[in-house]
Design a binder for these strands. Sequence first.
DNA 1: TCAATCCGGGG
DNA 2: GTGTACGGATTGA
Length: 810
Amino acid sequence: MDTDQQPNPTLAADALRAIQDEWLWGWDPTPGIVSVWAEPDGRAFVWRRPPATGELVREDETFRPWVLLDRLDDLAHLGAGLAPAGAVTAASPEGVAAARFTYCELDGPGALRFLVTGPDGRELAAAVLKGAAGRLGRRVGHLRELGPHAALALPPEEQYLVATGRTYFRDLPFDRLRRLQFDLETTGLDPARDRIFMAAVRSAGATEVLEASGEGDAAERDLIRRLAARIRAEDPDVIENHNLQGFDLPFLDRRAQILGVPLALGRIGAPGLRRRAARRGTASGAGRVRFVVPGRELIDTLDAVLRYDFATRELPGHGLKAVARHLGLAGPEREIIRGDRIHHVFRTDPARVRRYASADVEEVEALAKVLGGPAFVLARMAPRRYERVADAGAATGVIDPLLVRAYLHAGMALPAHEEGDGTPHSGAALYLFATGVARRIVKADVASLYPSLMRAYRIGPARDRLGALLAMVDRLVEWRLAAKARGRAAPPGSADRYANEAMSSAMKLVVNSAYGYLAAGGALTRFADVHAANEVTRRGRETLGLICRELAGRGVTLLEADTDGVYFAVPEGWGEADERRVVAEVAALLPPLVQLEFEGRYAAMLSHEPKNYALLGYDGRLLLRGVAFRSSRAEPFGEAFLRRAVARLLAGDVAGVREAYLATASALVRHNLTARDVSSRVQLTKPPAEYVETRDRRREAAYEAMLASGLPPWSVGDRVRVYHAARGGLGVVVEPDEDGFDVDASDRRDYDVGYYLHLLRHTFAARLARAFAPRDFPVVFGEPDQPSLFDEPIEAVRTVLTPVEGLPGA
DNA sequence: TCAATCCGGGG
DNA sequence: GTGTACGGATTGA
């Protein structure tokens, strides 16, 4: 370029954006990669479905394994075997001289500045370790032992993807992937003892159920063989199931081992499942494992569910059935069988179990598509295998690999992980302004507050010399807005709309985790910066304070505010137009990029504790939020009381609240409720022998109840309901199932009335305590037979809204 | 009231 | 060649 010439700003901006897009999406145009398997020896196997045909092709590639080091000293012993690669980078290994190993010093102040490549990753590691051992005067067995400040060595697939700039799924729609779902039905949860007796397999829109033709080893062995053969014949790119890594794969692996069946599930290599270390995965105990299969991506829908619920916090549980029902994926006739009954039912009614298993794989197929979109899009960006992107968090799983690739692509040295300087991280703002009952509620939403503040005030990691994180967040927001617009323009239900919605939620996920990336400890993310993170939260509190002051100044009553939004009550006589006007006025006062939006309006709210409240919609719908109002273990009678009482309360019917309380108390006293109504549901996770061993140290009610019940020993995973019986005992209710097995004395009513009256008042009624003045609480929730002379009549009791003392900032 | 421990999910 | 989940419930002191 002519240095005398003024740079063209538009051209420069376009070039910059092109580079930033390479940071996000890689730069190699190769389309349709569906799986990558690389070996440390520099071989990479790439399976692709070229968009034109969709037919699977395998391409055998080679790459130069590489490692990033903080020093070259350790390789001095190589002599002429190590040569500078000049302009050679990992991205362009051509030009490598005759030397077996080459190096290149990267620019900038980062500690990890020597990019060393070799013909074989193990040889490369061995050379480094030899030198390091000499320098340190001790044996060094693995690059990891040098510490993250001294060496960065990625798994072979990631070395390949970072070096080539390739990513998965370029130009490939989700529906072009060949996906297969399989689900095992077993006689129990313990693969050492229990057997596989059925496997449902779904592929290409068809479900097939495989069954063992008997109960012995031979029949199970044959079933496993047929399952593996079925998978190989379908040759899927992706294998999916719910808790695949936590149950089906470990169970299958173990049974195959015990029975001596080769498990050839991969597209290349020897039979047998391979493992990699991982945090989440198989059943309890040390040494958790993730299974991997060359050429196929193993997708556990449980990961997608956890990721989804992390953002929405709306799922009732994370089990397949609960999630499928919640998301409307379950059919109306969905066969349900309690887990510990499945094998029994199979013996008398195998058709039912076939329907059950078929529904499982069909729901998994739907669930994987509905919740798997973001991971599919993220795999187009990050230099990692699809299955790794799907099971990792966005910060360490996506942002960190993107930054590593960006730095190497730019020829910049990478900062090493660095511990913070001890500055504590100051958390998010959460204000509770008032508790009790309020009417005419408005929720205003602060959209993506933290990333907006990072962008508006250019708050990024201090050591990010490239400015890559902020640049990527900026570009992601642009991509997201464009995808949202395209999605809205596409016909509902179309592949185009699906793709754009997935794109939009993937971008949102990454953008929102940019702050988490800053705030994570230095041990976790490479560019973690507690000062930057604190600056974001400080601006966040400032902004939230401004929003609250400006709202309050316009005559509304603040109830609760956090970084997601603000709840407030408006004066009598205001309509929706007034509510929207106030929100718009305040929104106009905020820093650039920070958006405040009208999100919804409700007739009434019971504010109990931060993040724990009940809302009554203008359509009469009751919404309960927070653990205080919805707990999976809550006793049915208490849950029923709470719903009824809160509904009456928000409808303004205090007498109705008392009626609900009296009715429940009286039902308890008269034993109109069954033991089941007062019981709580628990799952037994320890085998009897283990509990007997530990019960001296730690008594647990559920197991004590089982031991006292005289029932036969339980199996791990059994679910029972336990309750407090009269005279201090414990009782067990075994749920009668649909087949009439286990017909139990479920009509028993020998529960401890005093205990449950106490629970009703102190646990359940207590959640409505903030709705009343302290002196009125006994009027609403007093014992029916002990009316105090000083109590006022129930008709005189009014609900209250009490300001919280000592408000910060407001 | 607090610290320690266990739990999720799968049959 | 991972990511010291994480946030709630329960139990024992």
